[in-house]
């Protein structure tokens, strides 16, 4: 059995770890709350742009736009959203294993990566897949510039036929404890996917300038809205995962502290008993000697 001093030292170090995990948990809680607010306020735009897309859908087949071109898929651009920081449970591992699965599902295609977040970059730079672009240190609010940076890379790559298809892997946020890595197809945009509600055509409105021009203007913005939403959801999922994992870390620390306190008390008791035993046997021995 280790001495009381060693146990005491261990207890102290577990307590300080617990203080850190508690603090991180609190930070994650407040960041999660803000991320959820952002998610809520991003919803109206996403819904409205979807509505607009649907109103344009009848004219979609007539429209000849570079982002709607369908080619035989040989090269896929894959956007991947991971976090910059760790200590968030299985968050990054889940995204990465989904990515690996995606790549394995497309063995005959060339997959080129566009990485958002340091964790994904740290992993994939050591592998052989080509990396076309990386975006590290995304800001907490997620700026429009960051979204445009990514959409710019995708649009340019698709127009120059560097990608025949672009997919995005992000973590969908349902609640702090329920998140899920999702693959979303970004390009080419397909009318069937735009029309989720089965296309209720309400009579074509007047378009100014023309439906074609509005569509050309709208497509990149639609793409940006989707990327923004995926980024916001991913950040919320990250904070949720961090909150949950830090909470369980704090609980584990609590358990460890109580187990260690128990063995500390046992060790202390044992040493007291031992000392007492020594004193009494010593006294006993002296008395025995005097009697003689």
């Amino acid at each position: 059995m280790p001495g009381t001093k060693d146990i005491k030292r261990r207890i102290r170090s577990v307590i300080s770890i617990q203080q850190i995990t508690r603090a991180m948990e609190m930070i994650a809680v407040s960041r999660l709350k803000r991320a959820e607010d952002r998610l809520r306020s991003a919803r109206p735009y996403a819904e409205k742009i979807q509505e607009l897309m649907e109103s344009l859908a009848p004219s979609l087949p007539r429209i000849d736009h570079p982002l709607l071109v369908k080619r035989e898929v040989k090269r896929i651009g894959l956007v991947l959203i991971t976090s910059d920081k760790g200590l968030c449970g299985g968050y990054n591992a889940n995204v990465i294993s989904r990515t690996t699965r995606f790549i394995n599902e497309h063995p005959d295609k060339e997959v080129r990566l566009i990485l958002i977040g340091r964790k994904g970059y740290d992993l994939f730079r050591r592998k052989t897949y080509p990396i076309d672009h990386t975006l590290l240190q995304i800001s907490k609010e997620i700026s429009l510039q960051e979204v445009k940076e990514i959409s710019g890379v995708i649009v340019k790559g698709f127009q120059e036929a560097r990608y025949d298809e672009v997919d995005l892997i992000y973590t969908r946020f349902q609640s702090a404890v329920s998140t899920q890595p999702i693959v979303m197809k970004l390009l080419p945009l397909e009318s069937s996917e735009v029309l989720k509600k089965g296309s209720e055509v309400k009579g074509e409105p007047i378009f100014e300038p023309t439906a074609e021009e509005i569509m050309a203007y709208l497509l990149p913005k639609y793409l940006e809205a989707q990327i923004y939403k995926a980024m916001v959801e991913s950040v919320a999922s990250e904070q949720g995962a961090r909150m949950v994992s830090m909470k369980s870390a704090s609980e584990n620390a609590e358990e460890m502290i109580s187990a260690l306190s128990l063995s500390y008390n046992k060790a202390r008791q044992a040493s007291i008993t031992k000392e007492l035993l020594e004193v009494t046997t010593g006294a006993e021995a002296l008395r025995f000697a005097q009697k003689k």
Binding site: P205, I206, F207, E208, P209, E213, I214, Y217
Partner: peptide, 19 residues
């Protein structure tokens, strides 16, 4: 400010989309 010039909208406008 529409891309082809300013325009105004009042109630009961016919369905209309502009950039």
């Amino acid at each position: 400010a529409g891309t082809v010039g300013y325009f105004g909208i009042l109630a009961g406008h016919t369905p209309f989309v502009s950039s």
